[in-house]
Design a protein around this nucleic acid. Structure first.
Lengths: 335, 335
DNA sequence: ATGAAAGCGCTAACAT
DNA sequence: ATGTTAGCGCTTTCAT
């Protein structure tokens, strides 16, 4: 059997409450501190989180439900979040939505019933019904990436609209006029919607026409990236530049570009959202919009922790982090 | 405050112990069952896992420490494992090793101290010192993907050697003789070692010579895949086929192949380990060795659960799952 | 089948 | 600064 606080008390001839106090950062006489530390080491004492949790009604667990983890973006965030949270004393209870979004409610309920202290959720196209249950149980929630249009929920996201604007403006300033966009599923994803909006605003602000055949809608998927480029290249009047709305799309687009023998940037300039390993490995290196993923994770962790502490100042917070444009070699200057 | 078992007892005029019995699958009179179920629903009662854990000294949490999650392979496994485990009543406590392997000990210790009932570990190049601590605390461990050369530990892995043999033999039977291999870090990773061994065995069994300039060692990374192909293509005498040891390598290799304008399979036949989205999207579709990831996760979950139940029959189990070759269009038949 | 009661390991309020 | 004690919500004998 593992050592308990009682054992430490016995070994040191102190009361268990003294040990408890010490374990929780209280001050004890130096002589006793040494005694206690010694006993802890000798016995291999580790406080029982179950007992502590029962007493304090806190689990020190954060539930995380994210998008599909099979994706460097989601995965990066998960990794960052775990590291950060652990430093703050929480462990991460991860649930995988798998391939069906329908289960979101069930999963959140599961997490809540397991007793998590807080929830970090990246909304896919859920209906967010679960927010009701969470509210009922008074569990703090922070939404990542998008608030899904709900007003009354904390969320930290990336200013995708701004990022898309940056990318498009860069293309425009390089002299491009026939600019295409590989879009995401704007019907369902706020991030896709925002990126599209950013593109449109830039075009509008510079008084450029947008041709509907240059707007290729699809999923955030390899497949649609691949096919998108193919469709663009079947056009009579081909675009001179393309803004790609996400990494998966970009992977597929690059494959198509290579297969069709399209030269970047001579024949086609490319700017893509998301900056991962591919972006620098490919020749020429890609100009991209990099999301501040680490900052995103950090901010979300701080916020959820603050809410768990009971600090609801500023609620609901809507934090929009600015992405940045990384200029590399995939855009040709015209004129 | 959330409802407790006491509330349910009061509402139903039954004893706490009766409710408890019912909650744990015991039999009660039909009339009472209805009463209890009704009260549970009305009160929204959910048993406290902390209290339960304290009593039973079980947390119903499984600690998971994996390779870098930024990788579809690891990510798939994590997803599968979570889903499976949840069905068996466990939740998943994930820790991210981040970029430094050095912390493995610390992380496992963390997980154990949090009270996990069992551990699922994918070894990177850790020294496995943590197994001592885990043994001390009597926490069951199942190693995924490789036992890291330890005899006394359960592990479920994929027969990578066999997979590599399959791939190489396929190339040989298609008439190839000048076969190159993009290897992984065999010094450090058992999986890389096994894949290399499988390759060598096949070549040996068919009495084919292996040229050292066709053996390109590297990390399991995009970069080394890219550069590997470049190096191969600088050779006087180019290979007619290449066996690529992993998905990341393959991604990089494909980029290089496209950039250099190498035609598959006319100029170069390709078989790669790992089967993911890329494999079917690229033209021509890739012939690959698919790992039984779902089976891997399933098997590992069953095994860890069995150990937690105290069933140590067959210990230590070494389960080697067979991968399969998926023949598509990236290999040219010579002769 | 049901009930009474002990106690898992800890924290926190209170007393010293 | 240290000690005493109650009790968090549950499971588990042991009676009935």
């Amino acid at each position: 059997m593992a050592a308990t606080i009682k054992d430490v008390a016995r070994e040191t001839n102190l009361a268990i409450s003294t040990i408890s106090k010490y374990m929780n950062g209280g001050t004890v006489r130096k002589r006793n501190r040494i005694l206690i530390e010694d006993a802890i080491k000798r016995l291999g004492y580790v406080p029982s989180s179950a007992a502590r949790g029962l007493r304090t009604s806190r689990s020190y667990m954060i539930g995380v439900m994210g998008g599909c983890i099979n994706n460097p973006h989601t995965a990066s965030i998960l990794g960052e979040v775990e590291t950060k949270l652990r430093k703050e004393g929480y462990s991460l209870n991860y649930v995988s939505p798998g391939w069906s979004d329908a289960k979101a409610d069930e999963l959140v309920r599961y997490l809540v019933d397991r007793g998590v202290d807080g929830l970090l959720i990246t909304p896919e196209n859920y209906d967010l019904e679960f927010l009701r249950y969470v509210g009922e149980k008074q569990i703090p929630v922070v939404m990542l990436e998008s608030g899904s249009g709900r007003e009354n929920v904390d969320c930290v996201m990336v200013d995708c609209c701004g990022g898309a604007y940056l990318a498009t403006e860069y293309l425009i300033k390089a002299g491009h006029r026939r600019i295409a966009m590989l879009e995401g599923p704007e019907k369902r994803k706020a991030t896709a919607r925002e990126r599209f909006r950013g593109f449109m605003r830039a075009m509008e602000d510079y008084d450029y026409p947008v041709y509907s055949e240059y707007l290729i809608e699809g999923e955030f998927s390899y497949k649609d990236g691949y096919e998108g480029i193919c469709r663009l290249w079947e056009l009579e009047q081909k675009p001179t530049a393309v803004f790609i709305a996400n990494y998966d799309l970009c992977l597929g687009a690059m494959a198509a570009i290579h297969n069709l023998g399209i030269r970047i940037p001579e024949e086609l300039s490319v700017v893509s959202f998301d900056d991962f390993e591919l972006s620098v490995m490919v020749r020429p290196k890609l100009t991209t919009v990099a999301q501040p993923l680490e900052k995103l994770a950090d901010t979300a962790c701080s916020l959820i922790n603050k809410r768990i502490q009971g600090d609801y100042s500023g609620y609901p917070e809507k934090i929009r982090l600015k992405p940045r444009l990384i200029c590399r070699d995939s855009v040709k200057k015209i004129r």
